[in-house]
Design a protein around this nucleic acid. Structure first.
Length: 239
DNA sequence: ACATTAATTATGT
DNA sequence: ACATAATTAATGT
């Protein structure tokens, strides 16, 4: 029977091909993928939805199948700081990999997104039984740590223009989509979002982008930013 | 060198 | 028409 107690509502049947090419699962047999999928809950999220919140008990872990998620923390003074963006094809909410039982940050969808999730009690089973799952997940936590660490260094040493230039370049590298005359960040992003990424104000970001726009480095419509001249941006990123 | 405040304009439903 | 995004100028630290 196609009804399945773990699937939310009315989503299309989950096909094995959803996972077979993703690194944490790419070494697995088809029947292993099948059982993994049968245990998964699939859910669609509108843009701007919190998948889970900082400090909440980490009851599930997630695989982002489509869309983008920003990982957000709230500072003691109440302002949002975006630590990083996660593109589709990556795991998130993997508190167990950090030895935690609560989520260390809030995950907000930056665009309409689709994610699978599993109850956290399956985590140890995944790590133990599925070849490549452990190594791949720890590889990604390593990469994220590195990225966040790099950002901290930037905040301490670089000026605002360099920071937002760097942030833009990272976004373009990680989530950029090639278009006719440049590379566009392929989810909606506001000046406010960029300012939260770079620990500055939306006004400063707005001024910088306006300046770069006149200089022909970038082009932007509302919530859409396109980099026309990455090399020139790299120059501003280095001061 | 950058934030803050405030006023103004543009854009999407 | 309304809410949200973006720009711009003036002023403050």
């Amino acid at each position: 029977m196609t009804m399945n107690a773990t699937t939310h509502g009315t989503l299309p049947r989950l096909d094995e091909s959803l996972l077979t090419h993703l690194p944490p699962f790419s070494k697995l047999e088809r029947r292993q993928i099948r059982t993994i999928l049968d245990q998964a809950t699939s859910r669609r999220y509108d843009a701007g939805t919190a998948i889970f919140r900082e400090g909440a008990p980490a009851e599930r872990f997630y695989m982002l199948l489509d869309g983008y998620v920003r990982v957000v923390r709230i500072s003691p003074t109440g302002e949002q700081v975006t630590a990083l963006h996660i593109p589709s094809g990556q795991l998130l909410g993997i508190a167990r990999a950090l030895g935690r039982d609560t989520y260390p940050a809030t995950a907000v969808t930056a665009s309409e997104s689709l994610a699978l999730s599993w109850p956290v009690h399956l985590w140890d089973k995944f790590i133990a039984e599925y070849e490549g799952f452990a190594t791949e997940t720890y590889k990604t936590v390593g990469q994220r740590l590195e990225e966040v660490h790099g950002k901290v260094m930037e905040m301490a040493t670089q000026q605002v223009e360099q920071r937002v230039a760097n942030a833009l370049l990272r976004l373009v590298n990680q989530t950029g989509r090639k278009v006719d005359d440049g590379i566009e960040i392929d989810f909606p992003i506001t000046r406010q979002d960029l300012s939260e990424l770079t620990a500055t104000t939306l006004h400063t970001v707005s001024r910088l982008l306006s300046g770069w726009e006149k200089a022909g480095l970038v082009a932007s419509k509302r919530k859409r930013i396109k980099v026309l001249d990455p090399h020139a941006l790299v120059l501003r990123a280095q001061g």
